[in-house]
């Protein structure tokens, strides 16, 4: 877990919707069966039955468990930001919570409603009533549905479905340079792009372009440069052109120059494209 990592907007949206669903659910039932003189509700603590002015709450672990699963689902991507697995955990937890709600509905249909008759529990007994009624889902249910959709999207896209602050290829290359060093990062990227290169311990060569980080062996020459040379230091970069002209630049410009110079030497293999056409 890393507190320094910023929270993605996608995660904030998901958490806000799910928490607001839970908050609304505390005051407004998720599912309602309403008749002229009685009603059944699915609340966070269980089944609430209203009958001629009296209220009865049938406490159910299904709803309490679903509440816990939903709360876990909302909080885990905020607390655990360093891995995509928090998003998967969140989605899985939300799914379990949703299953609990479905189970509660099945329970309601199986034990509190039967062939059009409603079982109306009271503190002293129960009524068995046949009277016209209507059932419907309310706001918390739809908010939970919306958060389930967003959670699924977050899991599939690693919470990057809103096009903002998306790392570019340059950002990714820069991150690789930080972690793997100049030679390690560029050799990987040359392979990915398809730029043929030769590697030595502290040097990469792309045709007549030499990319180096140090020159302890004093092999590079500013008098008689063999092609173009780019040398990376800790704070800056030296570029030696073919004609011996030298230029210093900052690290960012050095990275961009290296990409440009390497790409100049890349070759597009048209045979592979043609094979795909005939396949």
């Amino acid at each position: 877990m890393n507190g320094k990592l910023k929270i993605r907007l996608e995660v904030v949206i998901f958490t806000a919707i799910l928490l607001s669903a839970l908050l609304v659910w505390l005051f407004y039932p998720l599912w309602i069966l309403r008749s002229a003189n009685y009603a059944q509700y699915i609340t966070p603590l269980g089944f609430e039955i209203y009958f001629f002015g009296s209220d009865f709450l049938l406490i159910s672990p299904l709803m309490i468990t679903s509440l816990i699963f939903f709360a876990f689902s909302a909080i885990i991507p905020i607390v655990w930001r360093s891995s995509r697995y928090s998003l998967y955990s969140s989605s899985f937890s939300l799914l379990l919570g949703f299953v609990m709600i479905i189970n509660a509905l099945i329970f309601e249909q199986r034990y509190l409603n039967f062939h059009g008759y409603s079982v109306i529990l009271t503190p002293t007994g129960s009524f068995y009533i046949y009277f016209p009624y209507s059932t419907y889902f309310s706001v918390p249910f739809y908010l939970i549905l919306a958060s389930a959709a967003i959670s699924t999207l977050n899991s599939l896209t690693r919470a990057r479905w809103i096009p903002y602050n998306r790392p570019t290829l340059l950002d990714k290359l820069n991150r690789d340079i930080m972690s793997k060093g100049i030679i390690g990062a560029f050799s990987e990227w040359f392979e990915r792009i398809g730029i043929p290169y030769a590697a030595e311990s502290n040097k990469l060569m792309v045709k007549d372009l030499t990319l180096s980080t140090e020159d302890r062996g004093r092999e590079l020459s500013v008098f008689f440069p063999n092609g173009e040379i780019i040398v990376f230091g800790k704070r800056g970069v030296l570029y030696i052109a073919k004609d011996g002209e030298i230029k210093y630049m900052n690290l960012d410009d050095g990275i961009k120059l290296t990409i440009a110079k390497a790409l100049e030497r890349a070759e597009i293999n048209r045979e592979i494209v043609e094979e795909k056409i005939y396949l």
């Binding site: 590079l220 040398v231 990376f232 800790k234 800056g236 030296l238 030298i246």
Partner: peptide, 8 residues
């Protein structure tokens, strides 16, 4: 020597 390491 013009190489960055030497200048640094």
């Amino acid at each position: 020597s013009p190489f960055p390491e030497d200048i640094e």
